[in-house]
């Protein structure tokens, strides 16, 4: 293989021109033939589409669904684009067990949050520290199997850390606690360099006029509705909405800092951790 061009190289001097048997078929195969034989196995389509479904829908598909997905893939000549198009537009993809039932990975949580809040991704050192503390040390999975994902992202520890990191993100404050913790290396080694680098970091925070209109900021109902739609694409439970209103009502004059805290509170819910 030539990795740069994703093509097989032909070396006539060491080429085997004889018959070869592969997965029950015999012939004078070259590399492309072998790949063709692999992808023409019914199991290949099941495997690939099952992985894609699991990645986007957050669950291992049932056997029936996996079969249906594989059929769509094969019917489209094993092309990804039409397959994904069908998958994303299928009723099953919006089933009640899929929608808002996938735990966001730390990366989904961080990038999803900055997209929804229309703010900047924190500087690399902070983004790294946050995702690492939340259990996803990028490019360093715990083992060759990778992260277990799903509900295993959530422990009492990582959940509180998500809630506190939300504060750093919206307020643009430095996650000092995170700094103290991720500076330590396993084995107890110090990380003075990291601590110093952290002191130079400046965080942006959320800009309210980007995400709320003047009218929404003047009307608490409209503001909560708008923020719910932005952060959850659905409504929170009644008691939770009430809790938010109670918070906003507790302020005599609603200033930006209070609205920002309200956003942080909305992100500090079980509901915000799923997508």
């Amino acid at each position: 293989m030539n990795p740069e061009q994703q093509q097989f190289m032909f070396r006539p001097r060491i080429h085997d021109d004889g018959d070869k048997t592969f997965l029950g078929r015999t012939g004078n195969f070259d590399g492309d033939d072998v790949i063709q034989i692999i992808v023409s196995q019914p199991q290949a389509a099941r495997f690939i589409t099952g992985k894609l479904w699991n990645y986007f829908a957050g669950q291992v598909p049932s056997s029936e669904l996996n079969g249906a997905l594989a059929d769509v893939f094969r019917a489209n000549g094993n092309n990804f684009k039409p397959f994904l198009h069908t998958m994303f537009r299928s009723q099953e993809f919006y089933g009640s067990d899929i929608i808002r039932n996938q735990v966001k990975s730390p990366l989904q949580w961080l990038i999803g949050s900055v997209r929804m809040l229309e703010c900047d991704l924190p500087p690399t050192i902070v983004s790294w520290g946050m995702t690492r503390q939340l259990g996803q040390d990028l490019f360093a999975p715990p083992n060759v199997k990778g992260w277990d994902g799903g509900v295993t992202w959530i422990t009492t520890n990582t959940l509180l850390t998500r809630y506190n990191d939300a504060q750093s993100l919206v307020e643009g404050t430095l996650p000092q606690l995170a700094a103290a913790d991720f500076a330590k290396k396993p084995g107890g080694g110090g990380g003075g360099k990291i601590e110093k680098a952290m002191q130079r970091v400046r965080m942006g925070g959320v800009k309210l006029d980007k995400i709320l209109t003047r009218e929404e900021r003047a009307d608490k109902d409209a503001m909560v509705a708008s923020l719910q739609n932005r952060l959850f694409q659905t409504t929170l439970k009644k008691d939770q909405q009430q809790a938010l209103h109670d918070f906003l009502d507790s302020k005599t004059k609603l200033n930006d800092a209070d609205i920002i805290t309200a956003i942080r509170l909305m992100m500090s819910t079980p509901d915000y951790q799923v997508t």
Binding site: Q59, V60, S62, E64, L65, G67, A68, L69, D71, V72, H85, T86, M87, R89, S90, Q91, E92, F93, Y94, G95, D97
Partner: peptide, 17 residues
């Protein structure tokens, strides 16, 4: 609204994992 219809061959209501 966004749905392009069922992928097909699926009984209504998939089992919960």
């Amino acid at each position: 609204l966004n749905s392009g219809g069922s992928i097909g061959m699926l009984p209504a209501g998939m089992p919960m994992t």
